[in-house]
Simulated scan of single mutants.
Amino acid sequence: MTALAVCLVLCAAITAATWILSLITNEHSWVDRIWSIAPIAYVWVFAASSGFDPRLVLMALLVTAWGARLTFNFARKGGYRPGGEDYRWAVLRERMPRLGFAAFNLFFISIYQNALILLITLPALTVAEAAGTPLGIWDVVLAVMFLGFLVGETIADEQQWRFHRWKATERAAGRTPTPGFLQSGLFAVSRHPNFFFEQAQWWTFYGFAIAATGAWLHWSIAGAVLLTLLFAGSTVFTESISRGRYADYDAYRSRVSAVVPWFPRATRAEASVTAGR
């Protein structure tokens, strides 16, 4: 079997397993639980099939570091424990008819997302097909960029982790946490910095296909494009929940960039004060 065939069989098995487990447990975060694990397997399959081409080994090591960090963060939040379902699925179940959500679970959560997990790793297939091209300065640049984005996501997740622990402590003490959502650190320049760094890593991963072939456009860019679209939808859905929970979330949205970190905008009130000086 070719490396792609092995990955397709593995993806089909994971897809079936996550869907069946969702039916058995009535939890719909099984794809979330393998999101940080399956890509490691896929990329190492391509690396092994190439005879451990240096560029593919570098890519596999970077994805392994990405997966280890993400798995740790997901585990400490209780994602692997029974009942560790993403809170957004429960909200979506309430908004959709039962049969509609069942179809959504099969076709989007299980099939589409598992296919996407494989797709984001397929720049490794492009690199495998160009195996033998020597490593160069652009591979070093891409590796440094990937690690920089990995550090950024680590910081964002750590800030979020500490904030939610503080919220839990406040509630345990009978106090209402104020503010109710994180607005400091990286979250002062992006409402979803972890989303930004996650996507940036996979766009950088695609860059290795460019470095290996010298061509800017390959069909394997589809994974990064579709991942960005997924996060765009996730951002809208997540913020619809936050806007319903926090009265001041719209003010936060008006001054802070949605995803790409950028300088905060002045609110209308602040702009009026500034103009009156």
Rank of each mutant, 00 (worst) to 15 (best):
I14Y: 03
L23S: 12
V31E: 07
V31C: 10
R33D: 13
I37Y: 08
Y42K: 05
V45E: 03
F46A: 11
A48Y: 10
S49N: 12
S50G: 06
M59P: 06
T64Q: 03
T64M: 05
G67P: 10
F74Q: 11
A75T: 15
G79I: 12
W89T: 10
V91P: 01
P97N: 14
A102D: 11
A103K: 11
N105A: 13
S110N: 13
N114L: 03
L118V: 02
I120S: 05
T126K: 05
E129L: 10
I137D: 02
W138Y: 13
D139F: 08
V141K: 08
V141D: 07
V144N: 01
M145E: 11
L147W: 03
Q159L: 02
Q160D: 03
W161M: 05
K167Y: 03
E170V: 03
A172T: 08
P177L: 08
P179M: 04
S184P: 00
S184K: 11
G185N: 02
G185K: 02
N194F: 03
W202Y: 14
T204K: 02
F205D: 06
F208V: 12
A212K: 04
T213K: 01
H218T: 09
A222W: 09
A222V: 15
V225T: 06
L226R: 10
T228Y: 06
T228K: 04
L229H: 09
F231V: 00
V236Y: 07
E239D: 14
A251S: 13
Y252W: 06
R253F: 00
R255H: 06
V260K: 05
P261G: 04
W262P: 00
F263Y: 14
A266P: 00
R268F: 08
A269W: 01
T274E: 14
A275M: 05
